[in-house]
């Protein structure tokens, strides 16, 4: 699971009003390099919640993203794009769990796939 996906997932448990961002328990993190596409990154930049991405990256062992929400002018910087690309698309949570910020309920991640299925009493 890439951090782009983490940035798009929230806890879907009935009654949870603040299900984003999900916490991360990382047991195994892997990196897979993919070609960088600046247009895609520029497109995604406006959709990404920055602080959750920074925090998720840090948990996964990558701390090179700027702490504060960058101004969109940084998108002209090759150096910034490389870091953003790496955090968003190259770092994978392979084994671990996503944690509901409100209830602490864990959604397991196995072989890189998050299981967001709910129990009957959570729907």
């Amino acid at each position: 699971m890439k951090l782009l996906t983490h940035n798009m997932l929230s806890s879907n448990i009935k009654g949870v009003t603040n299900g984003f961002p999900l916490g991360i328990e990382a047991e195994k993190v892997i990196e897979r390099s993919v070609d960088m596409n600046p247009d895609f990154l520029k497109n995604m930049f406006s959709k990404i919640e920055w602080k959750p991405l920074v925090e998720a990256s840090r948990i996964m062992g990558y701390s090179d993203l700027p702490e504060d929400v960058p101004d969109s002018s940084v998108l002209d910087s090759e150096e910034f794009l490389r870091k953003f690309h790496h955090a968003l698309l190259e770092i994978h949570l392979e084994e671990g769990a996503l944690v509901c910020p409100q209830t602490g309920r864990k959604f397991p991640v196995n072989k890189g796939i998050p299981n967001m299925l709910l129990h009957e009493d959570e729907v």
């Binding site: 699971m1 997932l9 929230s10 879907n12 299900g19 984003f20 998050p114 967001m116 299925l117 709910l118």
Partner: peptide, 26 residues
């Protein structure tokens, strides 16, 4: 996951009911 890999393409996979968990942010 195996079919994607055999073709050398990538998609993020999520086990869920329809799109539960994605709707809020996506």
């Amino acid at each position: 996951s195996e079919t994607l890999e055999a073709h050398g393409v990538y998609a993020e996979l999520i086990r869920t009911d329809i799109a539960s968990g994605l709707e809020g942010r996506l």
